[in-house]
Each structure stands twice: as C-alpha cells, then as structure tokens.
Write a protein that binds this DNA or RNA. Structure first.
Lengths: 138, 138
DNA sequence: TTATTTGCAAAAAATTTGCACTTGC
DNA sequence: GCAAGTGCAAATTTTTTGCAAATAA
C-alpha cells in the first residue's frame, strides 16, 4: 500500500485534500480516466472541487512525474498513475484502455535508432489499436 | 508522381479544388502539419477555403485511409499522408516530427501479444520522444 | 439534375488564465 | 505569516454542426 501523502511530500508538493483525492482515484483504477471522468467521479466526495483544479493538479503531477499523460487518439487526454513506460491497448469498439507489459525487445531497437539517426530517445509511447477480447466474444 | 485526382476517384470522392490542395500539401511536406498549419499554408492560394472545410476534408480522408492522424501528445492532431504504419520521433525541444522506418521486429511481438491477451491488434502507433540531432548540436 | 461538398457563423468541447480567497506548513 | 494551492468565472483554443449556396459528376 502506497502512502500518498508521503509521495506528494517527496516531490515537494503540499498535501491537500484535492491532490490526495485525485491521486488516490488514479491509483485505484485501471480505467485511464480523462479529466472529465476524474472530475465527475470525485464530484460526490468533493463537491466543491473545481474542474480547473483537476486540470492544474494533473499538470503538476505530470511535471513531477507522478502520472503519465496518454494520448490514445481521443479528443481529450487520459491519465495513468503508473509512470514507468508500458504500452497500451485501446479497443476500437468499447474504447477501453488496457495496460500491457513492457516489451523488452524494445531496448536494442531504441539503441539502434539512436545510432542510425543521431538523436537521443528519452521515452516512448506505444499504442496498439484493435478489438478487445470482450468485444470479440459478442 | 502520384495523380491526386485519381486517388480521390478511387475512393469514390468528388474531386474538388479544396481536396486537391489539402492532399497535395500533405504529400509535399514532411512536417506532419496540424489542421491550423494546413489551413494557414493554403490561405494564400485558396483564400476562400474555410477552416471547417479543412476539418471535414481531413476527416473524410482519414476515414477513406488517405491520411493518418497522429497524436504526438500536443493539444491538436497532426496529419501524415503516408498511411502505412511507421513510427515517429518527436523532438521535445523543437517539436519536429520525423518519420522512422518500420521496425520489423514488431511483427512477432504483436502476434504474441494477441495470443497472450486474446485480443486482436489491427494497427499500432509508436512514438519516440527525445532530442533531435539538430537540437543536440546546439 | 442531384447528391455532395463548401463556407459561414454559431455552438460545443477541451483547456487555460487571472485573481481574490483559502490553506498547508 | 506567507508562499502555494484552490475556486470561480471568463477567455482561449480546438473541433463540430446546421444550413443555405455552390458545384462535381
């Protein structure tokens, strides 16, 4: 079990109820929610929290490396509390976003790309699109 | 040299000056422009063309498989006239988007992912982020 | 001729900003 | 106490939509 308050302090962030709520919410879901989804899911427990706060909080979390921003091809971003790189699978029918395990084979690929192109890859995003097992079985 | 009018007809699209202009513009650039960029770059040659037309045109092109939409992590989408899958490199400093050659090693990776997860991957997007050679040399 | 496409202007969504108020430390 | 964080409302940015006029086939 992760101590959320500790994690925030580590990053020199003030521990506020809003930040705790948002970070906890992200830790306890696999849904990769959007800002809107986060906001709505916290509406009940934190009725006073504004949408702008959700935006600002996610932005600071992103900058501090507490969350990662996903751009799966929708109109809005989605968020993931797991920051280590891992690929995502997006179902084109139900729009679920699933975490995948890291692809170890990527290491040497990146090295050879760096050499070939003289640039420096720092991170990557990999999105697979298709139909998930649930939707296939319908 | 590709005959753009022919390509449009193949897809059962009416050949209009706006479509020709947008598709040609995409074919003659490696910039992976956004809607806004496309619109502005055609402002001179097609002053009457509206932004809505650019949006609508790119949407039909996308649906017909004439262009591919990239979500490199910015607020707006970018477009690429090359539809075959290939990874992209995005410079975090100058925001240039560079086409990379396909990674052949991906085939078997996708197959094993499909097997392991019981889903069906149809396409993928791979984005590498880092510093390009130009920015490294500054 | 007629179904499509376009332009315009207005609407809708998504995100950001300014600023006064509040709060964590 | 004070810098950092929040809420609100307004502003911006990005994208979509409705509809009348224009146009490709």
């Amino acid at each position: 079990m992760i101590n959320v308050a500790e994690k925030l302090k580590e990053k020199h962030l003030k521990v506020t109820p809003q930040r705790l709520a948002i970070y906890n919410m992200l830790l306890n879901t696999h849904e990769h929610p959007s800002v809107e989804t986060i906001y709505k899911s916290l509406e009940e427990s934190h009725p006073a929290m504004s949408l702008a706060t959700v935006y600002k909080t996610l932005d600071t979390f992103k900058k501090k490396g507490l969350v990662q921003e996903l751009n799966v091809g929708e109109d809005s971003f989605r968020y993931d509390a797991t920051c280590e790189f891992h690929p995502h699978f997006i179902c084109e029918k139900c729009h679920t976003v699933v975490d995948l395990q890291s692809v170890e084979e990527l290491g040497p690929i990146i090295e050879s790309l760096n050499e070939k192109n003289n640039f420096l890859i720092k991170r990557e995003q990999m999105y697979f699109y298709g139909i998930c097992s649930d939707c296939l079985n319908k």
